[in-house]
């Protein structure tokens, strides 16, 4: 099926959702990503990715409770679905399998 594989940024966002657990909504995800990567994560980009992840069925969302801080607007909280978890695991395993096959990989030596 088209779209089941995970892009690099998608993987990062999905991981962040998982990491943030109950606090995973768009602005928090942006902040967290910025903190991890050191690069600025634009809301526009993240929003689009979140939307895509949801479309692919890797994440799901629900609206939280209203709070006065956001002009009375509710937050949309994301969580990783089962399919999302599987995709994350698979991506991780894939990488590790390749890592394992690298003979005598020496980080210091190569630099």
């Amino acid at each position: 099926m088209k779209g089941t594989n995970l892009g690099e940024f998608e993987e990062l966002v999905l991981l962040t959702i998982a990491a943030l657990a109950a606090e995973a909504y768009s602005v928090a995800i942006c902040d967290e990503l910025e903190r991890y990567t050191g690069r600025s994560a634009k809301l526009g980009v993240v929003h689009a990715v979140l939307n895509r992840l949801e479309e692919k069925g890797l994440a799901k969302s629900h609206l939280g409770d209203a709070s006065a801080t956001r002009g009375g607007k509710r937050k949309r909280f994301y969580e990783v679905t089962h399919a999302g978890k599987v995709a994350l695991m698979r991506a991780k395993e894939l990488r590790e399998a390749i890592w394992r096959n690298i003979p005598g990989f020496n980080l210091e030596g190569s630099i």
Partner: peptide
């Protein structure tokens, strides 16, 4: 469907 939380997000950034 997207409007409410997007509006909230933008407001948060605005503040």
């Amino acid at each position: 469907r997207l409007l409410e939380d997007l509006e909230g997000d933008l407001y948060e950034y605005f503040i």
